[in-house]
């Protein structure tokens, strides 16, 4: 599965557009991590635990989007976009979307 956030894929030709695909995940903070982050915030700076958590979560949303694209018999997703939003109760939603397409490598 090829992913790009441009409208075209370099070195490939888009044969057919299959439609919009998306994937999301909502992650709540882990209490232990939150306490750890709260302590780290006494000093300030990067909160590594959260960086990893959001990284993994975004990967999960992307994987779900890829799953949708596969169900549409697409082999690439173009114009991928990501959004993040905080929902109530210290949970964050990670959302990935794009257009599933069928591409062919240029000869």
């Amino acid at each position: 599965m090829l992913l790009v956030n441009t409208e075209t894929i370099p070195g490939h030709t888009i044969i057919e557009a299959r439609g919009l695909v998306s994937g999301n995940t909502i992650r709540a903070k882990h209490l232990g991590r939150d306490i750890g982050a709260g302590l780290k915030n006494l000093v300030g700076g990067e909160l590594t635990g959260y960086t990893e958590l959001l990284n993994e979560s975004r990967q999960e949303a992307t994987d779900r989007m890829i799953g949708n694209a596969m169900a549409m018999q697409a082999n690439a997703v173009v114009n991928v976009r990501f959004t993040t939003s905080a929902v109530a109760g210290g949970a964050a939603e990670l959302y990935a979307y794009g257009t599933a397409v069928v591409v062919r490598p240029n000869a």
Binding site: P10, G44, E46, T51
Partner: peptide, 27 residues
Amino acid sequence: LDHVPGTIAQSGELVSGNVVMGTGYLK
């Protein structure tokens, strides 16, 4: 921009980077 002007790329792939920062309570 969605391409490097004046060049033709051979391949493309999504790449990303993230970081979570706490500002610190003093700030």
